[in-house]
Nucleic acid binder design. Structure first.
Lengths: 225, 225
DNA sequence: TAAGTTTTTGACAAATTCTTGACATCAGGC
DNA sequence: GCCTGATGTCAAGAATTTGTCAAAAACTTA
């Protein structure tokens, strides 16, 4: 079960967040001030941090910075009383992932939390991933199929990794280009097709009838374990 | 659908921004220079402006100031080359809401755009939706009916999604064409009928007597859960 | 620089989906 | 109840999307 750490001293808001997230299946932990928040975070990093800006003992800004130093991948959503432009820019620079001003709409916060959680990837749980006779080791960037090593190029590897990290979800070519290729060189969407083709040839039992790297006609591709 | 106005003369960046925002459901309009940008803005103010600082005909700084004079509520994100000497505070005083230096990470820009658009919050959507024996999973683009998977084409899927997101409300064929099909390709209203037909055949218990995908004679269709 | 590798592009065929128009049927106004 | 326009339904053709290959371009490495 995914844990959410709420760093917030206002009791009312604490309760509201509990009521919002617990029915959705999240475990909510609450810290009353910045110091306690950092301690709780270090003890066992949660999947998401919801952070109030005005805190006793340690300001939200410091907590944000500190957390991003420790484990940069954990997303942070900042709560603040007033929309202050300078704060917004600073916070995003400090590493906050999103920003919500109080009073917030519960549905909006929930939606933002989902987005933030979806962005974080979970290969931290396992260094490698297997399907059929194929085993992919992410840190080693190695792929073994039926005992023999298979060579993937770096782009193929990144493509496979992103699809696997987002298993089951339909990914458009555009999203793949954004996430795997990045901004500087922006090729055609056909490039994606070709990489999928290569992945199928190298990893699927029957490349002509792919089971794992599936096409969703008119939408994109999705990986099914 | 929310519209984003991009004022930017670099073709590469234009394409990148298009591919970044369009999959997220935004409509992207591009203006090549400052003057054209201001004209486009006045014609129909968008939900967000992404503004390059170095522009032909009218500098980004002037555009920024001008826009804020016209409609101060529309957020502006400024793009600037890394080499530019940039006084953040000055820029923010001119009315910009946020700034990003090139080359930017797509993810970061998207996150900042979301923050900027916060004021016009879209209703948050759940991952899945059920009625009768039918369950629709949106990110997976999967439909299961009585335990068996049902294949929807991408257009059918988008149509169903839009109707469900607007449950109970009567949607005209024109609105469906605008929202689901988009501006560029504009088929006959009969096309909508055909897609509704397919949805009924695939999702209704008795397609001849639809309970959920209802016709509102003379007005359009509406989804009833 | 040159050889080798990887990435990107474009062409074409194949697969799938979308659109259209014809005709049947239905709802609502008179 | 009849008439008119709106909707249901079907299937053929149009259009789009994807698979696949090979060559060009870009990048690496020696």
């Amino acid at each position: 079960m995914e844990r959410i750490l709420v760093i917030e001293d206002d009791l009312k808001v604490q309760r509201a967040l509990r009521r919002l997230f617990e029915p959705e299946g999240y475990t909510v932990e609450v810290a009353e001030d910045g110091l306690a928040g950092m301690q709780a975070f270090k003890l066992l990093p949660p999947a998401l941090v919801i952070l109030d800006l005005n805190l006793p003992k340690m300001t939200g800004r410091d907590v944000c910075q500190e957390i991003k130093k420790t484990a940069s991948s954990v997303p942070i959503i900042v709560l603040s009383a007033a929309s202050d432009v300078l704060d917004k820019v600073l916070l995003l620079e400090l590493g906050a992932d999103d920003y919500v001003t109080k009073p917030f709409s519960p549905r909006e916060l929930l939606a933002r939390a989902r987005v933030a959680l979806r962005r974080t990837v979970k290969p931290s749980a396992a260094d490698s991933f297997s399907f059929d006779e194929v085993t992919i080791n992410f840190p080693k960037m190695e792929v073994v199929r039926s005992g023999a090593e298979i060579q993937l190029t770096s782009q193929e590897f990144r493509t496979a990794k992103f699809l696997i990290e987002n298993s089951e979800r339909v990914i458009s070519r555009e999203e793949l280009l954004n996430e795997v290729w990045g901004y500087q060189n922006y090729p055609t969407t056909r490039t994606v097709d070709n990489h999928i083709l290569k992945l199928r040839q190298k990893l699927e039992k029957d490349p002509a009838n792919p089971v794992h790297f599936r096409t969703v006609h008119g939408a994109g591709y999705k990986f099914v374990p």
